[in-house]
């Protein structure tokens, strides 16, 4: 599945909730709770992406030319959104990741979480994912 196809799949999932904020956030909270996204050994300060309010940890490694991400957060809603990002980007080549537009966040009505004022580390996480992709593409 391409990055774009996964984005479309998520947009379809969220379209079921319509304008119902409760269902949408319950879904995000469920994603956040159900995913043990990162091994505690990787939750170290050097992998910590500092947001103002919630912490996000990101770990990446290259396997067979594809970049694999694992991430986590101390806030459950942030973790749910982090889970969506990992689902969309993990397992793709660095070039694909660098080119990803990630418009699905806007389309599922969570754009406010990416505004600079949210200070939740998500914007920094996306930037770090792309920087990691860039770093691996230069190495190879």
């Amino acid at each position: 599945m391409t990055i774009y196809e996964t984005e479309q799949e998520i947009i379809d999932e969220f379209s079921l909730f319509g304008d119902d904020w409760e269902m949408k956030y319950e879904h995000l909270i469920d994603i956040g709770k159900s995913l043990p996204l990162i091994d505690p050994q990787y939750k170290t300060d050097d992998r910590l992406i500092k947001g103002c309010q919630s912490k996000v940890w990101l770990h990446s490694e290259l396997k067979d030319g594809n970049l694999l991400f694992r991430a986590d957060s101390d806030a459950i809603i942030t973790k749910g959104i982090v889970g969506l990002m990992v689902r969309v980007l993990s397992g793709h080549t660095p070039a694909e990741i660098m080119g990803a537009k990630l418009e699905f966040i806007d389309q599922i009505g969570l754009k406010e979480h990416l505004s600079p004022t949210r200070a939740n580390g998500l914007v920094s996480m996306i930037k770090q994912m792309k920087l990691d992709a860039l770093a691996y593409s230069v190495k190879n």
């Binding site: 904020w21 409760e22 956030y25 103002c52 309010q53 919630s54 101390d74 806030a75 459950i76 809603i77 942030t78 200070a119 939740n120």
Partner: peptide, 21 residues
Amino acid sequence: LHPMDIGTLLDQQGIAVRTGH
């Protein structure tokens, strides 16, 4: 519970509080 999660869900209900340090 993380303060930011609480603040996010209060915001969805029209209630403006501050969360953080």
